[in-house]
Nucleic acid binder design. Structure first.
Lengths: 212, 212
DNA sequence: TAGATTGTTAATCGATTAACAATC
DNA sequence: TAGATTGTTAATCGATTAACAATC
């Protein structure tokens, strides 16, 4: 399947389709229509169809899309097929939670090791080694690591980020609630809890106001 | 300050301004211009100015905005001033990480208690009590809880969600990687790790392709 | 054939950016 | 006054939705 240039908006919806498709039980029909997908996820059906058109080579009128191929197409498109090795810096509570989450393999992510300013000797968290920071560069070079996950407090995040970039990392998943300055070729994806909270908080304010 | 109707796009950028403004050291100038804010955060200055116009009652030409009032205006607009009590369901690793994160108070969020299918007797995690699920409804009613945080595995998320709604919860912060079906007046905010991973993964694929 | 569904082309909508006037 | 900055109005851009033709 030849890929078109894809917009970020579409890209962000694809994982939703994928997880829904994966959750459909084995015994069901091997086909699924954009209409039913749209209804299940509370979206417009035209949008779903357009999105799917970006990654699959089409469904069959009156029948729909072959579920299996759709899963394969989206997975492949998102690069979930070839596993990305990542390192994580900051082995606190959140870091450990991420290290321990087994679901990332489904998304082609493998956290190879963690680094921390002060790890206990020979520490292992959730089956992954935790090294001191000075081991980071050699580890990244040896394993050709391209992705870094930042779970340190905000005040250390930029420092860790700069260091990751010096180690050859090209994509950074930032859980620290702060803006990171990076060169143009590096991608920072903020897992921005503050943003989510803003949306939630706003909804509740509106709700409370309505009651008055 | 009289609020206009605000778009979600603007709303999501406000926390970024706020955290940057909060991080500016005490001794600095009490004024900040939209231009400098924009440069610091890598955004367009017109956009920053328009965003700020939504929440503040204006800056002074040639001088900029009074930092203190800007912080106050954004905080108030986002409802960070009056604390929201929330409950958390699923006291696993991720749940514990959230319970232990002290930064939420800055965002006006207070996680009052956690609930879990099988908590240890009289368990307390990170200073918050962890109760069995059957205590949930009475707790929510007594404390008039409007926000729920879901950190259970995907397969239980919908069930927990339905239960929260029966308890009077109006806004749900969902960390489970699954779509939740809710009535129209309930807001679900997905903390969607899969979405972030898709964006990161895509960037790396492009990067690898470039090198070939 | 009729109807459900796909996929495309055109219209609408919303958000961002550009141009410019106002102000200190 | 000149220049930096704000704030507004208009133009552009991109994404969503609507209308419709194609297909099995």
């Amino acid at each position: 399947m030849q890929h078109k240039e894809i917009s970020k908006a579409v890209l962000k919806r694809l994982p939703g389709y994928l997880s829904y498709l994966r959750a459909i039980p084995e015994g069901s029909s091997p086909y699924i229509s954009a209409t039913s997908l749209a209804n299940a996820l509370g979206m417009g059906e035209v949008q779903v169809r357009k999105d799917l058109a970006m990654v699959s080579d089409g469904g069959r009128p009156k029948i729909g899309y072959l579920r299996e191929s759709l899963i394969e197409d989206i997975s492949q498109f998102l690069g979930y097929d070839n596993t990305t090795g990542a390192i994580l810096v900051g082995a606190g509570k959140l870091g450990q939670a991420l290290l321990g989450y087994s679901g990332f393999s489904t998304y082609g992510l493998d956290i190879l090791a963690a680094f921390d300013a002060k790890p206990a000797e020979n520490k292992v968290e959730e089956g992954r080694p935790v090294y001191t920071m000075d081991k980071m560069e050699s580890f990244c070079r040896t394993n050709k690591v391209l992705m870094g996950i930042i779970t340190v407090p905000a005040e250390y995040a930029q420092e860790v980020c700069d260091r990751m970039i010096r180690c050859g990392i090209k994509a950074i998943w930032n859980f620290a609630p702060t803006h990171l300055d990076v060169p143009a070729n590096i991608l920072v994806q903020n897992e921005n809890m503050a943003t989510s909270l803003a949306v939630l908080s706003m909804h509740l304010q509106a709700h409370i106001k309505d009651k008055k």
